[in-house]
């Protein structure tokens, strides 16, 4: 079992080491994922309902309020 794990580990390790253009591609992937998750997601794209309400019940009530606003406006 351990031998198997070691083989898989060395497979990935050697694969990454031997990459040529792949190294640039991985850099792009990591920068992109960092920008997306550590910057955009946290500072610019919070989940509106999750960050403003604590329970699903509150979220459901809020959305129900939103989608029936047109009726309230005409009454």
């Amino acid at each position: 079992m351990l031998e198997m794990v070691a083989k898989i580990f060395s497979f990935y390790r050697d694969g990454f080491r031997q990459m040529t253009v792949g190294k640039s591609l991985w850099k792009i992937i990591f920068i992109k994922i960092f920008v997306m998750f550590a910057v955009l997601k946290i500072f610019f794209f919070p989940n509106y309902l999750n960050s403003n309400f604590e329970t699903d019940k509150q979220r459901g009530d809020y959305v129900l309020e939103q989608i029936t606003r047109s009726v309230a406006n005409t009454n």
Binding site: L25, W26, I28, I29, K32, I33, M36, L40, K41, F44, F45, P46, N47, Y48, L49, N50, V63, Q66, I67
Partner: peptide, 22 residues
């Protein structure tokens, strides 16, 4: 590798810009 995860942005937009829909 350039394209991977560009679709995730749309999921961010669902949660932020289209919360009623999502």
């Amino acid at each position: 590798s350039i394209g991977v995860a560009t679709g995730i942005i749309m999921e961010f937009e669902f949660g932020t810009n289209w919360s009623n829909y999502s």
